[in-house]
Structure formats: structure tokens, C-alpha cells
Amino acid sequence: MEKLSFEIQISAPPEKVWSVLWDEISYRQWTTAFTEGSFYQGTLEEGSIVKFFDPDNNGMYSQVVKNIPNKEMKFLHLGEIYDGVEVPQEWGEATEAYILEENDEGTKLMSEIQTTAEFKEFFEDKFPKALQFVKNLSENQL
């Protein structure tokens, strides 16, 4: 596993950034950095399973291991979804976390990912773009 970290400073309070990250409509907007038409199904309560999809009904499913509103969201990725069918994977501690820290300028948003080598380049390319979308949405939406 490789640990990747990304961060961005956002001129908005943590509550606004959190809303942009997890509200259904804005989630669909910022995740276009990864795949156009991305969405999720399920609740974001700790312990629940959430499914992340592309428009073709492919994606992955994960367990919410931490949800501290306006502070931290962490997922443990369990497997992939092909044409709507869940396929468990042996990824070990494949996690994805979003950490929000309030500061004098607004919010520092950090993302930490534990990933396999095969996805490293993809995330290094896409995550900075995704965080820039979150910044733009957080600073410019009413």
C-alpha cells in the first residue's frame, strides 16, 4: 500500500466545505474530476456501506469507518462493483479520508489515501483537480 496526501486551503468555513463534499448535487460536481457522472448510494453513517458508482453502474463499495461532521470522513474500500455486482477485493487497509481543519483563512482540506500501486498515478493526477473543484464550489456557491 502507498499513502498519498493532498491538501488545499479554502476560504470558507468547515460547514460549507463539508456540505460541498457530501451533499448529493455538489458531490456529483466535484467528483467529475475522477469520472463524469459519479454518484453514491447509501448513508454516510459510521458502520454503513456506501456504494460509489459511475454512470455505467460500475464503481466500488466501502464502509464508513469515521464520520465526524465538519471534521473528518473516512472510508475503508472493500471491493469493486461491475455492472451493479459487488466483487470483494483483498486490498487490506485501502482507505480514503477527508480531514477539515478550521483556520484563520477558512478551512484546510486534507485527503489521505492508502492505495495499491496500480492506482497511485490515477490519484496523483485526479485528486488535486478534485480538491480544486471542492475549493471553487465552497468559495463560490451561495
Rank of each mutant, 00 (worst) to 15 (best):
K3T: 15
K3P: 11
K3L: 13
K3F: 10
L4M: 08
L4Y: 08
S5A: 15
S5G: 13
F6I: 04
E7A: 13
Q9L: 13
I10R: 04
S11T: 04
S11Y: 08
S11H: 12
A12C: 08
K16A: 06
K16I: 10
W18I: 03
W18G: 05
S19C: 13
V20Q: 05
W22S: 03
D23E: 09
E24P: 09
I25G: 12
I25Y: 13
R28G: 10
W30V: 01
T32K: 14
A33L: 04
A33M: 07
F34R: 02
T35S: 15
G37E: 11
G37Q: 10
S38N: 12
F39I: 01
Q41M: 07
T43H: 14
T43D: 11
L44F: 07
L44H: 04
L44S: 01
E45Q: 12
E45T: 08
E46G: 06
G47K: 02
G47E: 00
S48W: 09
I49Y: 00
V50D: 03
K51F: 03
K51T: 00
K51W: 03
K51Y: 08
F52N: 02
F52T: 01
D54G: 09
D56W: 15
D56N: 15
D56P: 11
D56G: 14
N58K: 01
N58F: 03
M60A: 07
Y61D: 01
S62F: 07
Q63G: 00
V65H: 10
V65N: 07
K66T: 11
K66R: 12
K66H: 09
K66E: 09
N67V: 04
P69G: 01
N70I: 12
E72D: 06
E72T: 11
M73H: 09
M73L: 14
K74G: 07
F75H: 09
F75C: 05
H77P: 05
H77Y: 07
L78A: 02
L78W: 04
G79P: 03
E80M: 07
Y82S: 13
D83P: 08
E86A: 00
V87L: 10
V87C: 06
P88M: 00
Q89I: 02
Q89K: 06
G92E: 07
A94G: 08
A94I: 08
T95S: 10
E96L: 10
E96I: 05
Y98A: 02
I99Y: 09
E102M: 12
E102G: 07
D104E: 15
E105P: 10
E105L: 09
E105Y: 11
G106L: 05
G106M: 07
G106T: 05
T107C: 07
K108W: 09
K108A: 05
S111Q: 15
E112G: 14
I113A: 10
T115Q: 00
T116C: 12
A117I: 12
A117F: 10
F119C: 04
F119W: 09
E121A: 13
D125R: 14
K126F: 12
F127Y: 15
F127W: 15
F127E: 12
K129D: 14
K129L: 15
A130L: 07
L131N: 03
F133R: 15
V134N: 01
V134M: 05
V134G: 05
K135T: 06
N136Q: 13
L137K: 02
L137T: 02
L137P: 04
E139R: 03
E139T: 02
N140Q: 06
N140A: 05
Q141S: 14
Q141L: 14
Q141P: 01
